[in-house]
Amino acid sequence: MKMNRRDFLRTAGVWVLGVGLLPLTDVLAQGARPQVLPGREALSAARWAMVFDSRRCREGCQDCILACHRVHNVPDIGDVEEEVKWIWTTSYEGAFPGRQHDYIDGLRSKPFVVLCNHCANPSCVRVCPTRATFKRSDGIVMMDYHRCIGCRYCMAACPYGARSFNFRDPRPYLDEVNPDYPTREKGVVEKCNFCAERLAAGIPPACVEACRDGALAFGDIEDPGSEVRKLLNSGHVLRRKPELGTGPQVYYIV
């Protein structure tokens, strides 16, 4: 067969295009994937959830925040605009905007702990173009720092402001590094992971463990005998922005 340069380039172009489209077959044909089995001591649940009891949380206390940020190598950037945080406190109005009225004097000064809500129907997972953020079968919404392309679509989609972006290299902003958890690079998004790495080792989340006042409870919300389930019936319980249909799994006793 005689082939001139033009024909060669055309044929080559079509081939290259075809190879480029090959991964799209993954969309249609999901092959068998290797399975990771949980360890023997791992804690497991049908759906993990957290209950925050505002009656017990002490004003000015930072224990849960410090514990979480130390364990997960969360940097202290020192700039509000580029802050990276997994768990922090805000006011009642901040946690429940639109739910306040002008005369809530008692509640106004109380701290409310906020973090990723590990939604049953997470909008961040829905919008992620690489599935770098995904929901596990036990309800935990996870981040793959090695797959994230840093498009920040998940940040726009999260109604709770729970996601942080590494605008700069976070490593110089760590006082000490916990070698049991990875540090991050600049350009990726991160957030609370309900201490998935600790649950796998059979220990409760760092924030829950650090709280000396019992203001944070953690457990399987689908288990009627669990502590979190019992707490839900002990007072008036709110969730942040439930009207959006995201199904947040952090519950607040006011």
Partner: peptide, 22 residues
């Protein structure tokens, strides 16, 4: 705009029809 431009092709390598960006 990407934080990790070197991973741009992840959009093709891990196609996610649930995302409008795809």
């Amino acid at each position: 705009d990407l934080g990790k431009p070197s991973r741009l092709l992840n959009i093709v390598l891990y196609p996610s029809p649930n995302s409008l960006m795809f």
